[in-house]
Design a protein around this nucleic acid. Structure first.
Lengths: 154, 154
DNA sequence: TCGAAACGGGTACAAATGTAGTCGATTCCA
DNA sequence: TGGAATCGACTACATTTGTACCCGTTTCGA
């Protein structure tokens, strides 16, 4: 848990991180090349970002030759999770499900991934079955509810 | 496509939006109260954010009495989806699955949601069993990747 | 009816972020 | 071995974001 509460990534930093995660291990020029191609950034820009990333603890360097080899110091999925959590956190209930669906639909998943998801869903379903069951449970329409955790609204 | 490509939300704006989504409909003072409680923001700050949100098209106002009633002009899930997509897009494969799992685990889902997810997963599994022939799906190479997120489904 | 309180809008300004030039040191190739 | 190419650090500056004051207007209590 050392590398857990890293400072948040800015947008540009996130983009560079994606490249680093992609390459897993690269010298500045390589990262630069990708960034230049995809974003039209000058190598100076990328180097600044890379430096900030190192400062923030997202990227680890190993000296080699004149410069460094850069590699991610935190996994993509962990960072992604944190970032997504930040977005989702405290959001109105019901908004997250469609996003999950969207992600499932548009992500390339292995069958192992799918199996795990399935297991998770089964688990969830069982949890759902025991709470109060009396209501006809018409699916709520997107707007009708708004009580949430914050009740004060007339 | 009217309300689709709205400019991205900054962090503070996102926080205020969450409140607006939560309340669904509120005057400035109400939003302010929540924001003050949760973030310690002055009402002036919230008002600025609210105004920028209106400008960006995320919030719709209706004049009432001295001021306005604010309400979301775009759904939480749509905005969320866009935001999450921005994060995930182009990220190294394999990083998204754990995030999806995490979301499923930590989100309150209705059984309808779970059913839908299940269906999606089944569908996916079938797709996996008969891969389409035209896409060699080379291992990611640093550059030249840009096929995009358009994961086509049947 | 008058003035205090509240409201929203404009304005202001500091901090963070995005973007990049420059420079001395190092490395590599001819 | 000398010079071109790189490298990372430092610096610079425009833009965006975060944060809030002030002010004219509306509302409401006395």
């Amino acid at each position: 848990m050392t590398d857990d509460s890293l400072p948040p990534l800015s947008k540009a930093e996130w983009i560079v991180m994606k490249i680093v995660w992609q390459l897993q291990k690269a010298v500045a020029r390589e990262v630069s090349a990708v960034a230049a191609e995809e974003n039209g950034w000058s190598s100076a820009t990328v180097k600044t970002l890379l430096r900030r990333l190192v400062q923030k603890g997202y990227v680890h360097t190993t000296p080699v030759g004149n410069g460094f080899v850069y590699r991610p110091a935190q996994s993509a999925s962990k960072s992604l999770r944190t970032a997504v959590e930040g977005l989702v956190g405290g959001i109105v209930e019901g908004a997250t499900a469609p996003v999950i669906a969207h992600l499932v639909r548009n992500t390339q998943l292995t069958s192992a991934d799918l199996d795990e998801l399935q297991a998770l869903i089964d688990e969830k379903k069982q949890t759902l079955e025991k709470p109060q069951v009396s209501t006809p449970s018409k699916r709520v329409s997107p707007k009708s509810n708004s009580s949430g955790k914050r009740g004060f609204q007339s």
